[in-house]
Design a protein around this nucleic acid. Structure first.
Lengths: 223, 223
DNA sequence: GTCTATATAATGATAGAC
DNA sequence: GTCTATCATTATATAGAC
């Protein structure tokens, strides 16, 4: 691992491998949690049913209730699990930056879940978003150093927008994949997405001339 | 209207005014559609109920069925309405570019609905996404002209990612607004978002040195 | 066109046996 | 810990009166 451990841009909901542990080896409680993570991520909270989650986990709906009490508490447990996992992964990343590439993969296992929960307005997961914003802020700080002109807007606000934009990709994965011609969660598509993001993040999307014209138009036309 | 009519960046789901026509003046059928648009956009398809939509529209659930047949057909009707509206607005924009600023506001009335539908995987609205991608492609074409290095990835793929990212903002409006300290759909927040996006779009998010390091790391570590 | 009343299906919640 | 069976609620779908 001799390469620069720097993450290629703002976090980072871009790849989403399912875990590496054999599903059958997990306890029923863990299987239910994993199944819920999957269903909530792919279908959203409303469409996911207790019955379907239980079926995926290979248990009865009754057992699900026994372990988690209710659908809402199950989501709370999933949220908490994801938050803790991401925190510990983040700590690991800070302690040992060289693990960047591998931990990024692991952390991104939760990408779809986080993005979906954010869109669904789950309050617990809001703390994750704030964490993403802080991470993005650090990235923007470096980028801002390389600028000649002063930013138009407070850095944290820009970081919030960039974070929301980053989350948009897994949220709209179906449509992105359609354009890609291949599933963005499969290795091939994932690689393409990573490369494209690297390119996007390292270049302006509109050139300075257009930008200043737009800024003028903005100040003139808008009220 | 002497300023440059050029749109400030990729489309453009950034502001979301409700229409300008008095709600009470609409026919029941139209009121139902408007109410559905609102509920689907704000709560998503699942959480929105026929009853609540009918209540907002000021009609009975039975009348809703009379006009639209079923909840699913109601969504289809909304999708179709939005697609047609955006197409006609797009045509208007092409015919008279100077109407840019005002039509942008009107078109963005559908922003939240489109973003939410895209996330929900509505197939009809997929065509809108493809349209967004094509528009974004045109923007990237200009930006690409100003580049010295060749893009790493096909332009349409990059356009798809940028489109998904742009849609992420209205999707996560709740969290964005929290960081903003003000509702991003209200004039003040909307203005801030527009300005921040202008800034973001016109500057790279990571500098070239970091980018090339990340690219090397990418090629080395990833398989 | 518009409403009220009802039927039917799905879902979350619960109780109790093993 | 795990299951089966059942209840209660909610939402959609339907029928028919005005």
């Amino acid at each position: 691992m001799t390469t620069d451990p720097i993450e290629p841009g703002p976090p980072s909901l871009r790849s989403f491998n399912e875990g590496t542990v054999a599903f059958e080896d997990l306890t029923a409680r863990a299987r239910i949690r994993e199944a819920a993570l999957k269903h909530f991520a792919e279908e959203g909270y409303e469409r996911a049913t207790i019955r379907s989650i239980a079926r995926t986990a290979g248990v009865s709906p009754g057992l699900l209730r026994h372990h988690y009490g209710s659908k809402d508490l199950l989501r709370a447990a999933c949220d908490e699990y994801v938050v803790e996992s991401l925190h510990s992964l983040n700590a690991q990343l800070i302690a040992d930056p060289s693990s960047s590439a591998s931990t990024r993969r692991t952390s991104n296992r939760f990408g779809r879940y986080v993005a979906r929960s954010l869109a669904d307005g789950s309050s617990t997961v809001g703390t994750i978003f704030d964490g993403m914003v802080t991470l993005t802020e650090q990235w923007l700080a470096r980028a801002d150093d390389a600028r000649s002109d002063p930013p138009l807007v407070d850095r944290r606000i820009r970081a919030a927008l960039v974070s929301a934009m980053a989350a948009g990709i897994p949220l709209l994965h179906e449509h992105v994949s359609r354009v890609l011609g291949t599933d963005m969660f499969e290795p091939e598509g994932d690689r393409l997405v990573a490369l494209a993001l690297l390119d996007i993040y390292s270049h302006p999307l509109i050139n300075k001339g257009v930008a200043s014209a737009a800024k003028t138009a903005f100040n003139t036309n808008d009220d």
